[in-house]
Amino acid sequence: MERLGTGGSGGGSGREGGEGVGFRPLYRQVHDTLLRRLAEGVWQPGQILPSEGELARELGVSQGTVRKALDALTADSLLVRRQGRGTFVAEHDDKQSVFRFFKLRSEAGGEAAPESRVLARAEAPASVDERDRLGLVRQARVVRIERLRALDGRVCLIEAIALPASLFPGIAALDLPNTLYSLYANRFGLTIAVARERLRAVALSAREAGHLGAAPGSPALEIDRVAFDLDERPVEWRLSTCLTEHVHYQSILR
């Protein structure tokens, strides 16, 4: 294996921690190498990784550089550190997926998991917007899922989800779980690594209002999310329309 930081995309002399125009820190190169292995399935969910020392020797970098890369992957919830046992590939169970990606919180406090009810699902040719948001070709097909979600027993949002049909064969026929991201990982081998959201204020349509038990035109929060897998490929477009009378959107900035 070519040593990291020596020529190629690393640039410069490959000094650890160096900065410069176009220079990528060595720990980021290690991070990207490990991320690529996760994407390729070299290490499966729940599997323990080689030790920091073993990875450092293999990649030709210091143990501290490996540790920094592992810390970054752990912060992204792709790895899990277990004291005295080692570093493991995250399994992305329902609880982890819910509280990492579901940002609505009840005004009553606590972190109650949302409940879901599927309204419709079908496969169809991708619309112009779906092709644009998911980077699909003109002939592509998508699976559309519409469902309601509730917190503390109160329905608070309706969401429309579009998935590339080629990546999720047969998903429309499955009994869909409350948390879809665990299904994506366990059934289709697609781990959601990051999601990008855009928020704006909207007025409820008559149909949305009927499902949410509100008056047409009521103010609501729209969350437009595109989720990406470990290969940085868009694999889900989700449009959620939320009533915020009893819930709020919580984002923790660090």
Rank of each mutant, 00 (worst) to 15 (best):
S62V: 01
Q63H: 09
R100L: 11
S51Y: 03
A108M: 07
H92Y: 09
S62Q: 09
S127D: 08
E91V: 12
D94G: 08
P45F: 01
L49P: 02
D94L: 04
E58P: 02
A69S: 09
E40S: 12
V98Q: 10
K68P: 02
E58N: 01
P125W: 08
V21S: 14
A90C: 08
E115I: 01
H31W: 11
R37A: 13
E123W: 01
S97M: 14
G110I: 02
A39H: 10
V98C: 09
R117K: 12
R117H: 07
L70A: 05
R121W: 01
R67F: 05
V128L: 15
R36F: 15
F88A: 03
H92P: 04
A75K: 14
R82S: 10
G41V: 01
V128S: 14
F23I: 15
R85S: 12
L59K: 00
R81A: 10
T74H: 10
H92D: 12
A39F: 06
V118H: 00
E19G: 13
A69E: 02
G53T: 10
D94Y: 04
R82Q: 14
E115M: 03
L104I: 05
L78Q: 07
G86M: 02
Q44E: 14
Y27F: 12
E19Y: 10
E107S: 11
H31K: 14
A112Y: 00
R67T: 08
L78C: 06
F99S: 10
S51K: 01
S51M: 01
E16H: 09
E52D: 13
E40T: 11
L119A: 04
A69N: 05
R67M: 07
D71W: 14
G86T: 04
K95F: 14
S77H: 13
E52A: 15
S106A: 12
Q83N: 12
D94Q: 09
H31V: 05
A90E: 11
K95R: 13
R28F: 06
G46Q: 02
L26P: 02
P125Q: 03
Q44L: 11
Q44A: 14
D94E: 12
V61W: 03
Q96M: 09
L73I: 00
G18V: 09
V30S: 00
Y27W: 13
E54S: 07
S127M: 06
L34H: 08
F99Y: 11
D32C: 04
V128D: 15
I48R: 15
G22H: 11
W43P: 03
L26K: 02
A69H: 00
G64H: 09
A108S: 13
L26A: 00
S77A: 15
A126H: 08
R105W: 06
Y27G: 01
L78F: 02
L38P: 05
V80A: 10
Q29N: 07
E54T: 07
E91H: 07
E91F: 02
D93R: 10
P25N: 03
L34R: 07
Q44C: 06
L104K: 08
G17R: 04
R121T: 07
R24S: 11
V89K: 07
A124E: 15
R82W: 08
V61K: 04
R24N: 09
